[in-house]
Write a protein that binds this DNA or RNA. Sequence first.
DNA 1: ATGCCGCCAACATGGCGA
Length: 260
Amino acid sequence: MKIATWNVNSVKARLEAVLGWLKESSPDVAGFQEIKCIDENFPRLEIESLGYNVITHGQKSYNGVALLSKHPIEDVTRGLPGLEDVQSRYIEALVTPKDAVPIRVVCIYLPNGNPAPGEKYDYKLRWMAALQARVETLLEQEERLIVMGDYNVIPEPEDVHNPAAWANDALFLPATRAAYRKFVNLGLTDAVRACNALPNQYTFWDYQAGAWQKNNGIRIDHLMLSPQAADRLTEAGIDRHVRGWEKASDHVPAWCRLAA
DNA sequence: ATGCCGCCAACATGGCGA
């Protein structure tokens, strides 16, 4: 089973790239972030015609997440349990392939948090604490579980082209990295890192200042696996080439493959 | 210091968020 995550930065502005990537990559399950539309405006028919079931947790103008699955979707949760949140950043569901073990899929768009310090950074840390609590609860089920999305967290210096330039950024501050380490230490496996030990494997390049041309990127989109899912991990990667497409998102898809 | 891009309200461009 192939599972992917992609911050599309407006599904309406990105529709051609989204459909092209789905045809090319053909994931069984995909999580999108920053769809930037209400549920009614999501291009459901176009995506369903490619063989996907679709659930969304949308919002006007900003944020918004969606899950696509070629297999049946059940047990949907919209919004991060335990957090009063007016922003649409969390969707969770159980995906049950025919004749295979179900996997619980969580798709997140974790707050950016800039400028830090400040209210937005406080919100980021509150959101991370609530995610920690939610995933602790889910791990008690001992299911195959994947928590994927735009974490807006640079885990390690090797995940950023110029660490010094990001030292005071909400994505790389010590408190951000500490909260993320605490999360990983629940027993989660970073699928891309587990399959590829090379440094500087980025998922985001800013639109500004020729960041893509200079490979001035960061790795902030992650697929995190429970032990039961990590035991099935066979392959993972980043669809870097998508950043070079016409009207590209500033993020590219990351994915992993789990054996049945 | 700034560079880009997409959203909105509302007609031109500025504010917001990233």
